[in-house]
Design a protein around this nucleic acid. Structure first.
Length: 600
DNA sequence: ATCCGCACGGATAAGTAGGACAGCCTACT
């Protein structure tokens, strides 16, 4: 068995720019505008929020890397940044109590930097380094294909210190004169700059929803008699969300305001109006709470939930205290927030389609997860137990194949060893453990295992992890050849996107879905909040084309099975019915389906 | 720079292929 590896909390190690989106909020009063986050790394000295401190440490770590200094020092700062980013209490408060070194990864050196940072808004070694390498280089470092070495080189040789100058250097052809950067890189740099400029400052749903729920519960605990609900993009379960929107139905606005101010992880108040309050949390997520009269609660909640397009379709809303009543008076059944997109939900609601929407209870198992045999952190038995606790009937263990070396992928020998362990676990397990693999598709479209090996697996999941930036035709043909391989049952995270971090591949989805529908190969909705791939709009297209889908958490730890709710939300947004999701079927039907398309 | 096992010095997450270039850098979970 491979040695256990430390888990990386976040896939992205570089700081990201954030932008904002206007929020469709309720009727009177007009909602406060969300402002842009400060562009500079450090801001207002005395009230630095944890996310700002974390961002500064991470920026320093990146500058160290660009400067070519000790990599371990850089990693130490990056590790400390991660700790602080997810730390629930205020770091500024910890500093006041001289407890900084109690944070894991914060020793004497980083503590000194932190003290200075909290007290003055910066620290000496950062200032010195930033004098040599401007902070705007960190934007350049975000460009895929440009690592620390290349960033330093373009800075020193071409004086490229920010994205604008990078763009100029690329357009004038100067960039291609740098060692290691040819015409290909130049072309993709221009695309990436455009993508980064388009990139939003939205947060991942998986980051915000748990926070939002804990805020909601905390306020509900303080005001048990109030109605408190999440609203906005979080309630609609958008893959990327603006922040936390909360509606509080209570007559005593003063109490509601103080309940919010007393929340444990707030960093600062942004503004307070007659019936709304806007706060910044330590995590950098904004909270907007709207205090409304209980008699109009339902109407206000629908308004605050949006979407704007859904509201436009509804027209004028009657005043009522529950959402159900509002919809009823409009002659509609209750419309779940996930499908309030301003698409076909009214038509579908009238046609009775809402009753057929998938729910989390429809899931009977999963086909894509990992164990310590590759890059998972738990044994097969532990993963199986966790799946059984969720009430699943089956779980396919799909560890990586050897092509993905970085994840400790299995060769055929270890795959056979693993099969024996799966068989053994099955003897005592409460659910059926299936032998599967997440088989790597290489750049030319070949799978890691031969047909004979594949045919012995209960489920074959195929994934593209490399070469996702190939041109459209090449990429599409590569995926289609995998769909046409009769041994492949499921294609995992088809687009390869990482939300807020990496665009998905440029596939011709019409062609892909047409082939998948014909071959009966399932496409995945990956429930990991970093992916949520297929996106609901693509999943919807796939279903319309006649494809079947599979929703999987891609769990690397037992806790990851809890991510299923995100996958289910995406499927609901795509109007998926249980009969279109292969892991909602009884396993007997699934194995028929597998046998069926393998017979082709 | 931090942590750990020991009291100062060694380890820190891994391994490979591809692109552009001629030995280096980056991306991938």
């Amino acid at each position: 068995m491979r040695r256990r590896r430390p888990q990386r909390g976040e896939l992205n190690r570089r700081h990201r720019r954030r932008t904002d989106e206007h929020l469709a909020l309720a009727v009177p009063p007009a909602p406060p505008e969300r402002s842009r986050s400060p562009r500079s790394i450090t801001t207002n000295v005395s009230h630095l929020a944890n996310f700002e401190i974390a961002k500064t440490l991470a920026a320093f770590a990146d500058l160290l890397e660009i400067a070519g200094e000790n990599v371990h020092r850089s990693r130490a700062f990056r590790r400390a940044a991660e700790t602080i980013r997810s730390h629930p209490e205020s770091i500024a408060a910890l500093r006041a109590e001289n407890l900084l070194t109690t944070l894991p990864g914060v020793g004497a050196g980083i503590a000194v930097a932190l003290e200075e940072l909290v007290d003055t808004g910066s620290f000496t070694s950062l200032d010195q380094l930033a004098a040599r390498y401007p902070l705007s280089l960190l934007d350049v470092l975000q460009i895929p294909g440009l690592g620390a070495k290349s960033v330093r080189r373009v800075f020193e040789e071409l004086q490229v210190s920010d994205l604008d100058r990078l763009e100029t250097a690329a357009r004038t052809g100067k960039l291609a004169t740098i060692r290691g950067l040819g015409p290909n890189v130049t072309a993709s740099v221009l695309d990436s700059i455009a993508a980064i400029r388009r990139r939003s400052m939205l947060h991942r749903l998986g980051t915000v929803l748990p926070l939002a729920e804990s805020v909601r519960e905390s306020i509900q605990r303080q005001m048990p008699e109030a109605m408190v609900d999440l609203a906005g993009s979080v309630r609609r379960m958008e893959p990327l969300v603006t922040g936390i929107d909360l509606v509080i139905g209570h007559h005593d606005i003063t109490r509601a305001v103080s309940a919010i101010r007393d929340l444990p992880d707030t960093a600062r108040t942004i503004n307070v109006e007659a019936s709304s309050i806007r706060m910044l949390l330590q995590s950098g997520v904004e909270l907007i709470a709207l205090m409304v009269a209980p008699e109009h609660y339902g109407t206000e909640l629908i308004h605050a939930t949006g979407s704007a397009a859904h509201l436009a379709q509804l027209g004028d809303l009657p005043l009522a205290n529950t959402e159900h009543d509002v919809y009823q008076r409009l002659g509609l059944p209750f419309i779940p927030p996930e499908v309030r997109s301003g698409g076909e939900e009214l038509t579908r609601a009238r046609a009775g389609d809402l009753d057929r929407l998938l729910t989390i209870d429809d899931l009977r198992g999963e086909f894509h997860c990992h164990s310590t045999w590759s890059d998972g952190s738990a044994s097969i038995a532990t993963m199986a137990d966790a799946a059984a606790v969720r009430g699943y009937d089956f779980l396919a263990i799909s560890d990586h194949s050897h092509g993905l070396g970085i994840a400790g992928g299995l060769d055929t020998t270890r795959l056979a060893d693993q099969r024996r362990e799966i068989d053994a676990v099955n003897q005592s397990s409460r659910l059926t453990v299936l032998a599967a693999a997440e088989v790597e598709v290489d750049r030319t479209g070949n799978l890691d295992f031969d047909d004979n090996t594949l045919s012995q697996l209960d489920i074959v999941v195929a994934s593209l992890h490399v070469g996702l930036r190939q041109p459209r035709d090449q990429l599409t043909n590569r995926l289609i050849s995998i769909l046409e391989n009769s041994h492949v049952d499921i294609v995992a995270h088809p687009s390869g996107r990482l939300l807020n971090q990496r665009e998905g591949g440029d596939f011709d989805w019409d062609r892909v879905f047409a082939v998948a529908a014909k071959t009966g190969t399932a496409l995945e909705i990956n429930a990991n909040p970093a992916r949520l791939d297929l996106d609901p709009s693509l999943a919807r297209q796939a279903l319309d084309a006649g494809c079947v889908l599979s929703i999987n958490c891609d769990a690397h730890r037992p806790e990851d099975f809890a991510l299923m709710r995100y996958g289910v939300a995406m499927a609901r947004k795509a109007w998926a019915r249980p009969d279109q999701i292969v892991n909602c079927w009884p396993y007997a039907r699934t194995s028929e389906w597998v046998a069926d398309h393998r017979r082709r």
